[in-house]
């Protein structure tokens, strides 16, 4: 297992990015917390994985977080709990109160969350994390050209939702 210092450093640098990725995918606040925790537990346990730099570490954490959320959603869809019920509990709320239900930013964030995935994840990584298409292709394990078309389609769909 990685050292406590290593884990704390990674959390300080990337906790927000991992939290946002989980919030983008998960159906409830509890799921976001679970996915967040599982991601960093995996990081702690992956002591054999070496990172070239901090960006590489961030990309790894985001990929693990996204996969974790998808696994949880799949598990939930197989269980008795209705997906509609869980989706209804989603609320993106920032701790400083800027993003609150009813605010413009809340509606915009919800619009992105309402998109299918893909293009939701590639579009999020492009708009919010500033990744290029080749970098996104590595995170989501897809061809670069496909990522380009996902981003274009996502932007189009986002415009339609917001209009």
């Amino acid at each position: 297992m990685r050292s406590a210092k290593d884990i704390e450093r990674a959390m300080t640098a990337h906790a927000d990015a991992v939290w946002r990725a989980c919030a983008l995918h998960c159906a409830s606040q509890a799921d976001v917390q679970d996915a967040f925790q599982e991601t960093f537990i995996k990081y702690a346990q992956a002591d054999g994985t070496m990172f070239a730099d901090d960006e590489h570490r961030k990309a790894w954490l985001l990929r693990v977080a996204i996969n974790q959320c998808k696994d949880m959603l799949r598990a939930r869809s197989r269980s008795d709990v209705s997906l509609d019920e869980t989706v209804a509990t989603v609320e993106l709320v920032s701790s400083d109160g800027v993003v609150q239900p009813g605010s413009v930013l809340f509606e915009v964030a919800e619009a992105l969350r309402s998109l299918d995935d893909p293009p939701r994840t590639p579009l999020y990584l492009s708009l919010c994390e500033g990744y290029t298409a080749p970098e996104i292709a590595e995170v989501v394990a897809a061809p670069v050209n496909t990522v380009y078309s996902w981003i274009a389609r996502g932007k189009q769909q986002l415009r339609e939702v917001l209009s």
């Binding site: 959390m11 906790a15 927000d16 991992v18 939290w19 946002r20 919030a23 983008l24 967040f36 993106l92 920032s94 701790s95 400083d96 800027v98 993003v99 930013l105 809340f106 915009v108 964030a109 619009a111 992105l112 999020y124 708009l127 919010c128 986002l158």
Partner: peptide, 10 residues
């Protein structure tokens, strides 16, 4: 969208 997500912190 970017601004909204930037407001979200762990």
């Amino acid at each position: 969208v970017r601004q909204a997500f930037e407001q979200l912190h762990a």
